[in-house]
Design a binder for these strands. Structure first.
Lengths: 143, 143
DNA sequence: CTTAGATACTTGCAACTGAAACATTTGCGC
DNA sequence: GCGCAAATGTTTCAGTTGCAAGTATCTAAG
């Protein structure tokens, strides 16, 4: 056997991803925001309004789940749903001032968190890692 | 702002992980095994019996969830629960012959899958990627 | 030997999720 | 323009999850 499961890419990726997610979730818990919610806020903050479908694929969350999530975020005053007149099927999600402020605060935490993880890791190695991760995502999409 | 969310490590990691997981799940769906179940089978197959707690941390699944999962896997005849006489608190999970055969089959698929993803990627780069992922998991555990 | 506390797992319950059904709007072919 | 298929979200419902409480076993102190 030349295959060792715990050395496989999906295993290592999942392991690191779950660990990162759990730890970061704990760090932002006091803001009453879940990790997927933070992702939505960060993306809206940095790239402007998005439709549900776009958001769904950007944050890797099922549209039905996301629809409900946006509902609670709207109730919390972090985002608003807007039906653009030019296309009544779409729902454009926009971040509010309150949501933007929250996003800024959380992204500060995220920055520190990432520094803590990458830590003394070689900056070039970190960039290489990210490039490989992007390649993997791309490659799977067209698999 | 020197921070770009969609270039952050947790984001890229999650994105790649979800994509990998979804695609692989679809590939093994016809065996009536979920991805976490496959992980359990693969680990038991390659490293022998494990307690629930050990399995839980190895596959990054909550113990309560895992306990129920092992229940359905036991019903399906893939694993057995054993109370070792020397320690009655622990439950030792062992893979059955049927489970082992299934694991072997699924790991073949996983091998092909991984080859498909890494594809033409430089073998050294892939190894580097894995090393970094291991480092990240370790680093978070002691964060 | 008894009992308090720790460990390891299981189960009950409320909350959440995903797939499928539904609703609405748009665009296309005629 | 009219009817129908496709696109986009929302809602429903059955199944799943995670936390907290419960159970069983072990360890150790007195």
């Amino acid at each position: 056997m030349d295959y060792w499961f715990t050395d496989s890419l999906p295993y290592l990726l999942n392991r690191a991803g779950v660990a990162l997610g759990e730890t970061f979730s704990r760090r932002i818990a006091r803001y009453e925001v879940t990790l997927p919610m933070y992702r939505v806020l960060a993306i809206l903050r940095q790239t402007g309004p998005k439709s549900l479908g776009e958001l769904s694929s950007l944050v890797s969350v099922e549209m039905s789940t996301l629809s409900r999530m946006i509902g609670t975020m709207a109730k919390a005053g972090q985002v608003t749903r807007i039906r653009p007149p030019e296309n009544g099927r779409v729902v454009s999600i926009e971040i509010t001032a309150k949501g933007a402020a929250l996003a800024d605060e959380l992204m500060q935490i995220a920055m520190q968190f990432e520094r803590g993880i990458l830590g003394d890791m070689d900056a070039a190695a970190a960039e290489e890692l990210k490039t490989l991760l992007r390649q993997i995502s791309q490659r799977i999409d067209k698999l």
